[in-house]
Design a protein around this nucleic acid. Sequence first.
DNA 1: ATCTCGTATAGATGAGCGCCGATATGTCCA
DNA 2: TGGACATATCGGCGCTCATCTATACGAGAT
Lengths: 104, 104
Amino acid sequence: MSKLSPIEFAKALADDTRQTIMRFCCCEWRSVSEIVEHTGVSQPTVSHHLAILRDAGLVTPRPEGRQTYYTLDQQQVAVCCGQLMQVFAPENQATVAVKDILIR
Amino acid sequence: MSKLSPIEFAKALADDTRQTIMRFCCCEWRSVSEIVEHTGVSQPTVSHHLAILRDAGLVTPRPEGRQTYYTLDQQQVAVCCGQLMQVFAPENQATVAVKDILIR
DNA sequence: ATCTCGTATAGATGAGCGCCGATATGTCCA
DNA sequence: TGGACATATCGGCGCTCATCTATACGAGAT
């Protein structure tokens, strides 16, 4: 999981289909077929979006036989959000709280 | 300052020029001319991006004579980041801390 | 080995958007 | 009132990217 700049993070999030995938994979492992069925877009499109999220370190793949299961990396999300807050809301109270927890 | 969905927030952040503007206006009031000079893009382009950020409630305009000064709304940023964390990192420790501060 | 199923990649297409020049709007000053 | 300046809007152009179909790759199963 490589570090993600605020720009890369924002661009990875800036698509409805990708956010749908992220919500769907938030607390569970989901196969590509399940994601295809849930999003309603074609399988290649899902694969494309998964590649983007995977490159951003936002989802983790787990190959299992013919299928590949994906899940959202909540820690990566939290760290990136914390970074956003430090850059764009440095004087906010919540930013301090997040920094204490996420940055060590 | 209207409420901002995770998608709208991400799309507003998903541009280098807009992030440059946001950083430049983070803790100070900046005129459009200053922003034009700092970003290096044309004045109409800056105006365009400011309109997007303004519609998202991420920057606050303060007209003063012929000039308009803008500053970043750190509270709006923090709230949106908090929302992102609750949606995409609900099991993370930092999310709980942010929620306690931002959501009332 | 061959077939089938699940996923990834390649190539094409169309919509969205970032950018600029030109122009409109609005404010201050003489 | 007229002119100069700051910002906003308009119209277009080019590029990025989300989507599709077609195809390749890879792992069971027969």
